[in-house]
Design a protein around this nucleic acid. Structure first.
Length: 378
RNA sequence: GCCGCCUUAGCUCAGUUGGUUAGAGCACUGGUUUGUGGAACCAGGGGUCCCCCGUUCAAGCCGGGGAGGCGGUA
């Protein structure tokens, strides 16, 4: 029984650098490669939790920064933890707040100790340190806790990247020390170093010395472009332990995800399917569809005739176009559902292909479908 | 009938003492969104300034006449 409570990763098969397996947690298993929908404010926007599960998601991402401000980690703890609060009983990974160090940079002050934020909600001041981030993620009841790090925007010069990476490594040690021993819960380290191979290697070495339950590649998808990102992913996963999950943070578009898995990534998260779902951008096998475009107004066909999600099973492009233009809430609901369903379809396709050694063929089919482009207007 | 106000982009309206290529919001046509500050943002197309005459180097703006609309009044 004690063993069942332990966090562990079983690698089932590899195909080239691509891997498939299962992460075991106290809240259930996570099939890898895994895509994690983002539920920043204790909700995947526009989706009921059971609907998110129906798309095939095994795990969600939650956010330290947003939840500490509202409704506060202490309140969520008093109400029984984040899983109960938001009615999601599978695993949750929480981001540490590190990303907001970058994305909210005009509202923060960074020191060795930590970061002072000014709340984007009411302007109130808040302090976040590795120790406080660990405390908050524990109060939330997170299954996979992320180290508190600093994520510099790219491009950045080498001096800045070096100092930032070294600070993040000192914070990684403090995160490890503050996390303590929590059976069933995992702590992931985050590699930094920008696009520099030697800095990435130094960062990976520092993290391996501390020892984590999983290792994230951080600091990518922050403005460098796919080519540069893939060039880092050509070596970064190899610098991290083979027997632990590797998580690429914040990625990405469908072709980014496929390229990352091909290079040895096991987990990813991204706001794109949910955010785009609310703003009319739809991801399909044949590429991106912008549902607001006039060409869909009279189109009785589904978004994707092969997709089994509710939006594709029961509604025409004309209807989805109409409800988007009319700003009806069902628009965000249906399009988010479709996007999440499609992303999970990609993950399932890759898991199956890797386990049968057919990843290359699967990938060729994936790119072949995209090359067709969207169906012509009717 | 008389008096007042109004007429500028598809819609609702700005437009200085007359002075570069007449603007905004919405709508329209596209684009962007990568560890969610975003139901967001960016770009583009679109004008016989109601019509005619006049003054002036120059008129959306000033003068005269006409048309249409709104309100008040008998």
């Amino acid at each position: 029984m004690w063993d069942l409570m332990k966090f562990s990763f079983d690698l089932h098969a590899t195909d080239g650098k691509a891997r498939t397996g299962v992460i075991h947690t106290a809240r259930g298993d996570i099939r890898t490669p895994a895509f994690m929908p983002v539920g920043t404010a204790a909700t995947v926007k526009a989706m009921m939790p059971e609907s998110v599960a129906a798309t095939g998601a095994d795990i969600l991402l939650g956010n330290t920064y947003h939840l500490m401000l509202r409704p506060t980690a202490e309140r969520i703890d008093r109400l029984g933890g984040l899983h109960k609060f938001m009615n999601w009983h599978k695993p949750i990974l929480t981001d540490s707040g590190g990303f907001q160090v970058m994305s909210l940079s005009d509202l923060r002050k960074l020191t060795e100790e930590g970061v002072t934020f000014k709340s984007h909600i009411d302007g109130s001041k808040h302090h976040l340190t590795p120790e406080r981030s660990m405390e908050i993620q524990k109060l939330l009841g997170s299954d996979i806790v992320m180290c508190f790090d600093e994520c510099p925007a790219l491009p950045a010069d080498r001096k800045r990247l070096t100092e930032s990476m070294e600070l993040s490594m000192r914070w990684a040690q403090r995160s490890r020390d503050a996390f303590g021993d929590r059976p069933g819960h995992a702590l992931f380290g985050i590699q930094q170093g920008g696009l520099e191979e030697d800095l990435r290697a130094q960062s990976a070495e520092a993290l391996r010395a501390i020892e984590f339950d999983g290792y994230a590649v951080g600091g990518l998808a922050v403005g460098e472009g796919q080519e540069a990102m893939f060039s880092v992913l050509d070596f970064a996963p190899d610098q991290l332990p083979q027997d632990k999950p590797r998580y690429l943070m914040g990625v990405g578009k469908p072709d980014d995800i496929v390229g990352a898995v091909k290079r040895g990534i096991d987990m990813m998260d991204c706001v794109l399917p949910s955010r785009s779902g609310r703003t009319g951008q739809v991801f399909t096998r044949r590429g991106v569809v912008n549902i607001k475009n006039a060409r869909h107004a009279d189109d009785p066909r589904p978004l994707d005739e092969h997709c089994t999600c509710p939006a594709c099973s029961h509604y025409s492009r004309a209807y989805l176009h109409h409800v988007f233009r009319a700003q009806e809430m069902i628009s965000g609901m249906l399009l988010t559902w479709h996007n999440l369903h499609y992303f999970q379809d990609i993950m399932q396709g890759m898991r199956s292909a890797i386990s049968t050694g057919a990843f290359d063929a699967w990938e060729a089919d994936f790119h072949g479908n995209r090359a067709l482009g969207d169906i012509p207007p009717c």
